Amino acid sequence: MANDHTHVLDFFTPRAAGWDSRFPDDGPACTAAVGLLGLRPGDAVLDAGCGTGRAMPALRAVVGPRGTVLGADLTPAMLEEATRAGRGDSGTLLRADIARLPLRDGVLDAVFAAGLISHLAHPEADTAELARVVRPGGVLALFHPIGRAALAARQGRVISDDDLRAEPRLRDLLAGAGWRLESYTDEDDGFLALAVRQA
């Protein structure tokens, strides 16, 4: 497990300070994605792999003052940036491993995960852990500010059916972890997969 964490920490720690400036225009897309979670005032939601907590104000806006917003990330430098940016005002920031969340079964109404899936060491086990903490009928949103083709082009690689975010692969992965893929959008200006927790 330590090796999995080393990779994540090595990737994100040096990027934390400039993270918010890397995707300066993705705020509206992120807010729109949060709106599709179907959250109601008083609900409980986790921003999984929250990074600098950019989604937390939008999540707080939909669950209201009586709702619960948690932001969990493995990288201390990201959480420090989130605190510096005031994101802790929108919810509780936790240093936590997505593979072992410090939450009881079924306590959440939804999980929002921006850019998370490609960084999971054990995608099926990790998405099953997300399912564990969400009530039946709750929602998982997998978001990225740009789609698969645009991201591949940016990284100088070819889009592949082996990609975890390819629709058939993602549908099977989520089904094995207790989720049903409900909607799938993969366009240049954003990626969003919405899944429902099965009973």
Rank of each mutant, 00 (worst) to 15 (best):
N3P: 00
D4F: 05
T6N: 12
H7R: 15
D10T: 13
D10H: 10
R15K: 13
R22F: 11
P24F: 01
D25L: 11
D26W: 00
P28R: 01
T31A: 14
L36N: 06
R40F: 07
P41Y: 02
G42I: 03
D43V: 01
A44W: 06
D47I: 13
G49A: 09
G53S: 05
G53M: 09
G53R: 04
M56D: 05
P57V: 07
P57W: 06
P57F: 08
V62H: 14
V62N: 14
V63G: 01
P65Y: 03
P65T: 13
R66I: 13
V69K: 04
P76Y: 02
M78F: 08
M78Q: 07
M78E: 11
E80N: 11
E81G: 04
T83H: 10
R84S: 04
R84E: 06
A85Y: 09
G88Y: 09
T92C: 10
T92G: 03
T92D: 10
L93S: 08
L93P: 14
R95F: 06
A96Q: 03
A99R: 12
V107S: 13
V107Q: 12
D109Q: 13
A110R: 11
V111N: 08
F112G: 04
F112Q: 07
A114I: 03
S118F: 10
L120A: 08
H122R: 15
D126C: 10
R132E: 10
P136K: 08
G137E: 03
G138A: 06
L140C: 09
L140F: 10
G147C: 07
R148V: 00
L151S: 13
R157L: 04
V158Y: 00
I159M: 01
A166S: 14
E167W: 03
P168V: 02
R171I: 01
D172E: 14
L173Q: 00
L174E: 01
L174V: 12
A175D: 08
A175N: 09
A175I: 02
G176A: 09
A177R: 03
G178F: 03
W179R: 05
E187D: 11
E187F: 02
D188S: 13
D189E: 15
F191E: 00
A193R: 00
